[in-house]
Design a protein around this nucleic acid. Sequence first.
DNA 1: AATGTTTTGTTATATTATAACAATGTGTAA
DNA 2: TTACACATTGTTATAATATAACAAAACATT
Lengths: 135, 135
Amino acid sequence: MRISKVNKMHNLSKNQQIIFDLIDKSSEPLKAYAILFNVQKKGIKAPLQVYRALDKLVEIGKIHKIESRNAFIACHNSSCQVAKATAFSICEICEKVTEISSAGLSKYLANFKDKDGMKYSKYNLEFFGLCKKCR
Amino acid sequence: MRISKVNKMHNLSKNQQIIFDLIDKSSEPLKAYAILFNVQKKGIKAPLQVYRALDKLVEIGKIHKIESRNAFIACHNSSCQVAKATAFSICEICEKVTEISSAGLSKYLANFKDKDGMKYSKYNLEFFGLCKKCR
DNA sequence: AATGTTTTGTTATATTATAACAATGTGTAA
DNA sequence: TTACACATTGTTATAATATAACAAAACATT
Ligand SMILES: [Zn+2]
Ligand SMILES: [Zn+2]
Ligand SMILES: [Zn+2]
Ligand SMILES: [Zn+2]
């Protein structure tokens, strides 16, 4: 059991690192083919290479998919085990997306029970409205 | 001058009615091209005809889009003005989807404020887990 | 009947995502 | 070290999802 194992969850492969860096630097969610276009100069030529990296990055929680937009954003809740419990606000005018980090909200949702008493530890919540600037 | 006037908000056009009926009868969310296949015998031949009807049905709240699945389900909260505030549970094994109707949840989310004090009247929440049968 | 609006029909195309297969690299343990 | 299991890469092709653009018909209101 060595460092590699400990940090396995943050040990990115070459393509994963390239694509994560791009998403992480971006001020807005990026779509797969926009990513592809941007990383072609780095030798990533095919959609599948992008999608594979995206899948992995989502799986390990480094990025999230904004489902309503088919776009990807870097996780900014580095503390949380949040590949599985995400919440975002989305501006319907400028499309600005912000990851919501609210202990109250995540607690409420993690404890929410449906009619059958079922609890769900995994969820995705997307709020829509107008951001400060667009209001 | 017929039924049309009274039920304006639920007065569907021919294609809208055909497609709504299909979705409403279905026990599972339907994808656009599955819908297309099913209504070709009724004269709806092109994807755009399906997507236009779907857009309208979503807009008026008769159906909802399950964003993580690119599929459509009939609204079963006939009481609520809920085109804009939806919550679902999704079984990750059998893909059963159920619309959640919880006064507590919708109240909590409608009143939720982000860090900037911003409230959002529109949201979509998707819970993931295993349904009763699959547990 | 005149009008503006919504809905429809149609062809073409754009966007998003996966299948299938071969090759290479990486971590682990005998 | 060597061998094995496994993850990652490269590549071509194709599937699945969604919209653009334009013309015609249906519908609602006056
Ligand atoms: Zn996050
Ligand atoms: Zn905005
Ligand atoms: Zn509903
Ligand atoms: Zn199930």
